[in-house]
Protein backbone atom coordinates (compact mmCIF):
# COMPACT_ATOMS: atom_id res chain seq x y z
CA UNK A 1 0.00 0.00 0.00
CA UNK A 2 1.29 3.41 -0.84
CA UNK A 3 2.43 5.92 1.74
CA UNK A 4 -0.41 8.33 1.02
CA UNK A 5 -3.01 5.58 1.27
CA UNK A 6 -1.75 4.55 4.70
CA UNK A 7 -1.72 8.16 5.76
CA UNK A 8 -5.32 8.55 4.67
CA UNK A 9 -6.43 5.41 6.47
CA UNK A 10 -4.81 6.68 9.67
CA UNK A 11 -6.64 9.94 9.24
CA UNK A 12 -10.00 8.26 8.73
CA UNK A 13 -9.31 6.08 11.75
CA UNK A 14 -8.57 9.15 13.84
CA UNK A 15 -11.69 10.82 12.50
CA UNK A 16 -13.83 7.93 13.66
CA UNK A 17 -12.04 7.64 16.99
CA UNK A 18 -12.47 11.33 17.77
CA UNK A 19 -16.10 11.07 16.71
CA UNK A 20 -16.72 8.17 19.09
CA UNK A 21 -14.90 9.94 21.92
CA UNK A 22 -16.94 13.05 21.39
CA UNK A 23 -20.26 11.23 21.31
CA UNK A 24 -19.36 9.60 24.62
CA UNK A 25 -18.25 12.90 26.15
CA UNK A 26 -21.25 14.83 25.01
CA UNK A 27 -24.48 13.14 23.88
CA UNK A 28 -25.55 16.21 21.92
CA UNK A 29 -22.71 15.52 19.52
CA UNK A 30 -24.31 12.55 17.83
CA UNK A 31 -27.48 14.25 16.74
CA UNK A 32 -28.56 14.80 13.17
CA UNK A 33 -28.72 18.52 13.84
CA UNK A 34 -25.21 18.78 15.14
CA UNK A 35 -23.74 16.53 12.48
CA UNK A 36 -25.45 18.48 9.71
CA UNK A 37 -24.23 21.75 11.16
CA UNK A 38 -20.76 20.27 11.39
CA UNK A 39 -20.98 19.24 7.75
CA UNK A 40 -22.20 22.69 6.83
CA UNK A 41 -19.24 24.29 8.63
CA UNK A 42 -16.90 21.85 6.95
CA UNK A 43 -18.41 22.55 3.56
CA UNK A 44 -17.95 26.32 3.89
CA UNK A 45 -14.23 25.84 4.58
CA UNK A 46 -14.08 22.93 2.18
CA UNK A 47 -15.20 24.77 -0.94
CA UNK A 48 -12.38 27.27 -0.47
CA UNK A 49 -10.02 24.43 0.38
CA UNK A 50 -10.75 22.77 -2.97
CA UNK A 51 -9.50 25.84 -4.79
CA UNK A 52 -6.60 26.10 -2.42
CA UNK A 53 -5.58 22.49 -3.09
CA UNK A 54 -5.06 23.34 -6.74
CA UNK A 55 -2.91 26.29 -5.70
CA UNK A 56 -0.75 24.06 -3.53
CA UNK A 57 -0.43 21.50 -6.33
CA UNK A 58 1.20 24.25 -8.39
CA UNK A 59 3.50 24.91 -5.42
CA UNK A 60 1.90 28.32 -4.86
CA UNK A 61 -0.10 29.88 -2.09
CA UNK A 62 -3.12 32.15 -1.90
CA UNK A 63 -3.47 34.22 1.25
CA UNK A 64 -6.19 36.41 -0.24
CA UNK A 65 -9.04 33.87 -0.13
CA UNK A 66 -10.49 35.19 3.15
CA UNK A 67 -10.51 38.73 1.83
CA UNK A 68 -12.14 37.55 -1.40
CA UNK A 69 -14.98 36.15 0.71
CA UNK A 70 -15.32 39.52 2.41
CA UNK A 71 -15.34 41.61 -0.74
CA UNK A 72 -17.72 39.36 -2.68
CA UNK A 73 -20.20 39.26 0.16
CA UNK A 74 -20.05 43.05 0.24
CA UNK A 75 -20.74 43.14 -3.49
CA UNK A 76 -23.84 41.02 -3.00
CA UNK A 77 -25.08 43.00 -0.05
CA UNK A 78 -24.71 46.24 -2.00
CA UNK A 79 -26.74 44.84 -4.84
CA UNK A 80 -29.36 43.68 -2.39
CA UNK A 81 -29.54 46.97 -0.54
CA UNK A 82 -29.37 49.42 -3.37
CA UNK A 83 -30.77 47.70 -6.44
CA UNK A 84 -33.75 45.65 -7.35
CA UNK A 85 -31.73 43.33 -9.53
CA UNK A 86 -32.55 39.67 -9.12
CA UNK A 87 -30.12 37.23 -7.53
CA UNK A 88 -29.38 35.43 -10.78
CA UNK A 89 -27.80 38.62 -12.06
CA UNK A 90 -25.67 39.71 -9.12
CA UNK A 91 -24.55 36.27 -7.99
CA UNK A 92 -22.78 35.60 -11.30
CA UNK A 93 -21.29 39.09 -11.03
CA UNK A 94 -19.93 38.26 -7.57
CA UNK A 95 -18.50 34.97 -8.83
CA UNK A 96 -16.92 36.72 -11.78
CA UNK A 97 -15.41 39.20 -9.36
CA UNK A 98 -13.76 36.33 -7.50
CA UNK A 99 -12.27 35.08 -10.77
CA UNK A 100 -11.08 38.57 -11.65
CA UNK A 101 -9.25 38.92 -8.35
CA UNK A 102 -7.61 35.57 -8.98
CA UNK A 103 -6.54 36.80 -12.38
CA UNK A 104 -4.88 39.84 -10.84
CA UNK A 105 -3.03 37.63 -8.34
CA UNK A 106 -1.92 35.31 -11.10
CA UNK A 107 -0.85 38.21 -13.28
CA UNK A 108 1.40 39.73 -10.62
CA UNK A 109 2.87 36.34 -9.80
CA UNK A 110 3.60 35.23 -13.34
CA UNK A 111 4.47 38.55 -14.94
CA UNK A 112 6.56 40.21 -12.23
CA UNK A 113 7.91 36.93 -10.88
CA UNK A 114 7.06 38.01 -7.33
CA UNK A 115 6.69 35.49 -4.48
CA UNK A 116 3.11 34.20 -4.36
CA UNK A 117 2.65 34.76 -0.66
CA UNK A 118 3.60 38.42 -0.72
CA UNK A 119 1.42 39.20 -3.73
CA UNK A 120 -1.60 37.52 -2.18
CA UNK A 121 -0.88 39.05 1.23
CA UNK A 122 -0.90 42.46 -0.41
CA UNK A 123 -4.14 41.81 -2.28
CA UNK A 124 -5.55 40.42 0.95
CA UNK A 125 -4.91 43.77 2.65
CA UNK A 126 -6.30 45.73 -0.25
CA UNK A 127 -9.47 43.62 -0.51
CA UNK A 128 -10.07 43.56 3.23
CA UNK A 129 -9.89 47.35 3.26
CA UNK A 130 -12.13 47.67 0.23
CA UNK A 131 -14.67 45.38 1.88
CA UNK A 132 -14.84 47.69 4.88
CA UNK A 133 -15.30 50.71 2.64
CA UNK A 134 -17.90 48.98 0.52
CA UNK A 135 -19.92 47.84 3.54
CA UNK A 136 -23.46 49.17 3.71
CA UNK A 137 -23.51 51.93 6.32
CA UNK A 138 -26.21 53.71 8.26
CA UNK A 139 -26.55 57.48 8.42
CA UNK A 140 -23.90 57.74 11.12
CA UNK A 141 -21.41 55.79 9.06
CA UNK A 142 -21.57 52.58 11.08
CA UNK A 143 -21.74 49.27 9.31
CA UNK A 144 -25.39 48.36 9.00
CA UNK A 145 -26.67 44.89 9.62
CA UNK A 146 -28.69 44.32 6.47
CA UNK A 147 -31.12 41.44 6.67
CA UNK A 148 -31.24 39.65 3.40
CA UNK A 149 -34.77 39.00 2.24
CA UNK A 150 -34.13 37.96 -1.31
CA UNK A 151 -35.60 34.47 -1.39
CA UNK A 152 -33.54 33.25 -4.29
CA UNK A 153 -30.40 34.25 -2.41
CA UNK A 154 -31.56 32.79 0.89
CA UNK A 155 -32.30 29.50 -0.85
CA UNK A 156 -28.56 28.90 -0.83
CA UNK A 157 -28.76 28.44 2.92
CA UNK A 158 -31.61 25.91 2.76
CA UNK A 159 -31.53 22.18 3.21
CA UNK A 160 -32.58 19.28 1.06
CA UNK A 161 -33.99 16.79 3.53
CA UNK A 162 -31.62 17.15 6.47
CA UNK A 163 -28.62 18.04 4.32
CA UNK A 164 -27.62 21.62 3.67
CA UNK A 165 -27.31 22.63 0.03
CA UNK A 166 -23.80 23.88 0.67
CA UNK A 167 -22.78 20.37 1.70
CA UNK A 168 -24.19 18.95 -1.49
CA UNK A 169 -22.43 21.60 -3.53
CA UNK A 170 -19.20 20.90 -1.65
CA UNK A 171 -19.26 17.23 -2.50
CA UNK A 172 -20.32 17.83 -6.09
CA UNK A 173 -17.58 20.42 -6.53
CA UNK A 174 -15.07 18.07 -4.92
CA UNK A 175 -16.08 15.33 -7.31
CA UNK A 176 -15.94 17.61 -10.35
CA UNK A 177 -12.58 19.10 -9.39
CA UNK A 178 -11.09 15.71 -8.74
CA UNK A 179 -12.42 14.60 -12.12
CA UNK A 180 -10.96 17.73 -13.70
CA UNK A 181 -7.56 17.13 -12.14
CA UNK A 182 -7.31 13.51 -13.09
CA UNK A 183 -9.26 13.26 -16.29
CA UNK A 184 -8.64 16.42 -18.30
CA UNK A 185 -5.58 17.75 -20.04
CA UNK A 186 -5.88 21.04 -18.20
CA UNK A 187 -5.91 19.17 -14.89
CA UNK A 188 -2.82 17.20 -15.85
CA UNK A 189 -1.15 20.50 -16.71
CA UNK A 190 -1.76 21.69 -13.16
CA UNK A 191 0.21 18.77 -11.74
CA UNK A 192 2.95 19.11 -14.33
CA UNK A 193 3.33 22.84 -13.64
CA UNK A 194 3.72 22.19 -9.95
CA UNK A 195 6.01 19.17 -10.19
CA UNK A 196 8.51 20.50 -12.65
CA UNK A 197 7.79 23.79 -14.40
CA UNK A 198 10.80 23.48 -16.70
CA UNK A 199 9.79 20.04 -17.88
CA UNK A 200 6.20 21.21 -18.24
CA UNK A 201 7.31 24.04 -20.48
CA UNK A 202 9.50 21.64 -22.47
CA UNK A 203 6.44 19.48 -23.02
CA UNK A 204 4.60 22.46 -24.43
CA UNK A 205 2.50 23.45 -21.44
CA UNK A 206 1.82 27.15 -21.00
CA UNK A 207 2.64 27.27 -17.30
CA UNK A 208 1.79 30.96 -16.88
CA UNK A 209 -1.69 30.39 -18.20
CA UNK A 210 -2.11 27.34 -15.99
CA UNK A 211 -1.07 29.33 -12.92
CA UNK A 212 -3.40 32.23 -13.70
CA UNK A 213 -6.22 29.74 -14.24
CA UNK A 214 -5.59 28.11 -10.88
CA UNK A 215 -5.63 31.45 -9.04
CA UNK A 216 -8.86 32.34 -10.84
CA UNK A 217 -10.41 29.08 -9.69
CA UNK A 218 -9.30 29.76 -6.14
CA UNK A 219 -10.95 33.19 -6.30
CA UNK A 220 -14.08 31.60 -7.72
CA UNK A 221 -14.29 29.07 -4.89
CA UNK A 222 -13.91 31.82 -2.30
CA UNK A 223 -16.64 33.85 -3.97
CA UNK A 224 -18.92 30.82 -4.01
CA UNK A 225 -18.36 30.29 -0.30
CA UNK A 226 -19.22 33.91 0.43
CA UNK A 227 -22.66 33.42 -1.09
CA UNK A 228 -23.39 30.35 1.02
CA UNK A 229 -22.04 32.09 4.09
CA UNK A 230 -24.19 35.19 3.61
CA UNK A 231 -27.26 33.08 2.85
CA UNK A 232 -26.71 31.09 6.00
CA UNK A 233 -26.20 34.16 8.18
CA UNK A 234 -28.98 36.00 6.32
CA UNK A 235 -26.70 38.99 6.37
CA UNK A 236 -23.19 39.94 5.32
CA UNK A 237 -20.44 41.61 7.26
CA UNK A 238 -17.16 43.01 5.96
CA UNK A 239 -15.32 40.71 8.37
CA UNK A 240 -16.69 37.58 6.71
CA UNK A 241 -13.94 35.17 5.87
CA UNK A 242 -11.10 37.33 7.19
CA UNK A 243 -8.63 35.02 8.87
CA UNK A 244 -10.28 31.88 7.51
CA UNK A 245 -7.25 31.20 5.31
CA UNK A 246 -5.55 29.48 8.25
CA UNK A 247 -8.48 27.05 8.56
CA UNK A 248 -8.21 26.38 4.86
CA UNK A 249 -4.45 25.87 4.93
CA UNK A 250 -4.79 23.55 7.92
CA UNK A 251 -7.50 21.49 6.19
CA UNK A 252 -5.52 21.06 3.02
CA UNK A 253 -2.33 20.17 4.88
CA UNK A 254 -4.09 17.65 7.08
CA UNK A 255 -5.46 16.21 3.86
CA UNK A 256 -1.94 15.42 2.73
CA UNK A 257 -1.20 17.95 -0.01
CA UNK A 258 2.38 19.14 0.54
CA UNK A 259 3.85 22.59 -0.17
CA UNK A 260 6.36 21.22 -2.59
CA UNK A 261 3.94 21.01 -5.50
CA UNK A 262 3.01 18.36 -8.02
CA UNK A 263 1.14 16.21 -5.53
CA UNK A 264 -2.26 16.28 -3.91
CA UNK A 265 -5.85 15.39 -4.51
CA UNK A 266 -9.25 16.62 -3.54
CA UNK A 267 -10.44 13.63 -1.52
CA UNK A 268 -7.56 14.17 0.89
CA UNK A 269 -8.69 17.74 1.28
CA UNK A 270 -12.28 16.64 1.89
CA UNK A 271 -11.10 14.37 4.71
CA UNK A 272 -8.87 17.13 6.07
CA UNK A 273 -11.76 19.57 6.08
CA UNK A 274 -14.01 17.12 7.92
CA UNK A 275 -11.20 16.45 10.39
CA UNK A 276 -10.69 20.11 11.18
CA UNK A 277 -14.41 20.80 11.42
CA UNK A 278 -14.75 17.87 13.81
CA UNK A 279 -12.00 19.20 16.03
CA UNK A 280 -13.52 22.68 16.04
CA UNK A 281 -16.90 21.20 16.85
CA UNK A 282 -15.29 19.10 19.57
CA UNK A 283 -13.71 22.15 21.19
CA UNK A 284 -17.18 23.67 21.26
CA UNK A 285 -18.92 20.55 22.54
CA UNK A 286 -16.35 19.95 25.26
CA UNK A 287 -16.91 23.49 26.48
CA UNK A 288 -13.24 24.45 26.02
CA UNK A 289 -12.11 28.02 25.72
CA UNK A 290 -12.69 29.26 22.17
CA UNK A 291 -9.16 30.66 22.32
CA UNK A 292 -7.86 27.10 22.08
CA UNK A 293 -9.01 27.09 18.47
CA UNK A 294 -6.26 29.24 16.91
CA UNK A 295 -3.69 27.34 18.97
CA UNK A 296 -4.97 24.06 17.60
CA UNK A 297 -5.13 25.31 14.01
CA UNK A 298 -1.67 26.89 14.04
CA UNK A 299 -0.27 23.95 15.96
CA UNK A 300 -1.78 21.37 13.61
CA UNK A 301 -0.12 23.00 10.62
CA UNK A 302 3.31 22.82 12.23
CA UNK A 303 2.87 19.33 13.66
CA UNK A 304 1.45 17.78 10.50
CA UNK A 305 4.13 19.33 8.34
CA UNK A 306 6.89 18.15 10.67
CA UNK A 307 5.44 14.63 10.87
CA UNK A 308 5.08 14.46 7.10
CA UNK A 309 8.69 15.45 6.53
CA UNK A 310 9.83 12.97 9.13
CA UNK A 311 7.83 10.17 7.64
CA UNK A 312 8.85 10.98 4.09
CA UNK A 313 12.49 10.91 5.14
CA UNK A 314 11.96 7.57 6.79
CA UNK A 315 10.08 6.11 3.82
CA UNK A 316 12.70 7.35 1.37
CA UNK A 317 15.53 5.80 3.33
CA UNK A 318 13.67 2.54 3.47
CA UNK A 319 12.96 2.64 -0.26
CA UNK A 320 16.58 3.45 -1.05
CA UNK A 321 17.71 0.53 1.07
CA UNK A 322 15.39 -1.96 -0.58
CA UNK A 323 16.33 -0.62 -4.02
CA UNK A 324 20.00 -1.17 -3.22
CA UNK A 325 19.31 -4.67 -2.05
CA UNK A 326 17.42 -5.37 -5.23
CA UNK A 327 20.26 -4.03 -7.30
CA UNK A 328 22.76 -6.18 -5.42
CA UNK A 329 20.64 -9.22 -6.03
CA UNK A 330 20.31 -8.53 -9.73
CA UNK A 331 24.06 -7.93 -9.98
CA UNK A 332 24.75 -11.23 -8.33
CA UNK A 333 22.26 -12.81 -10.69
CA UNK A 334 24.23 -11.51 -13.68
Amino acid sequence: MSVSAIRRLILIGLLIAIGIALSIANPSFLTVDNLMTLLQEASLTGIVAIGFTLILITAGIDMSIGAVIAITSMICINFISYTQLPAYIYIPIALAMGCAIGWVNGFFITHFKLPEFIVTLATRGILAGLALIAAVKDSQGFVKNVFIQDEVFLAFGETVGPVYIVTIVFFVLAFCTQFFLKRTRAGTNVYATGANPTAARLSGINTDRTLIGVYMFSGFCAALTSIFLSARMMTAMPEFGIGSEMDVIASVIIGGTPFTGGVGDIWGTVIGTLFLALIKNGILKLGLSPYIQPIVIGGIIVVVVVLDVWYKDFAEKRAARSARQKQMQSKEGV
Binding site: T188, A192, N196, G262
Partner: peptide, 21 residues
Amino acid sequence: YQELSLIHGMSVAQNIYLTKE
Protein backbone atom coordinates in the same frame (compact mmCIF):
# COMPACT_ATOMS: atom_id res chain seq x y z
CA TYR B 1 17.09 14.22 -21.93
CA GLN B 2 18.64 12.57 -18.92
CA GLU B 3 15.63 13.14 -16.70
CA LEU B 4 14.83 16.75 -17.25
CA SER B 5 11.55 16.42 -19.04
CA LEU B 6 9.70 13.85 -16.95
CA ILE B 7 7.07 14.86 -14.42
CA HIS B 8 7.40 13.31 -11.00
CA GLY B 9 4.28 11.94 -9.38
CA MET B 10 2.85 10.93 -12.74
CA SER B 11 2.63 7.47 -14.24
CA VAL B 12 4.59 6.23 -17.22
CA ALA B 13 1.54 6.54 -19.46
CA GLN B 14 0.79 10.08 -18.27
CA ASN B 15 4.33 11.12 -18.99
CA ILE B 16 4.36 9.57 -22.42
CA TYR B 17 1.14 11.27 -23.44
CA LEU B 18 1.52 14.55 -21.57
CA THR B 19 -0.40 17.30 -23.45
CA LYS B 20 -1.61 14.82 -26.04
CA GLU B 21 -3.62 12.44 -23.92
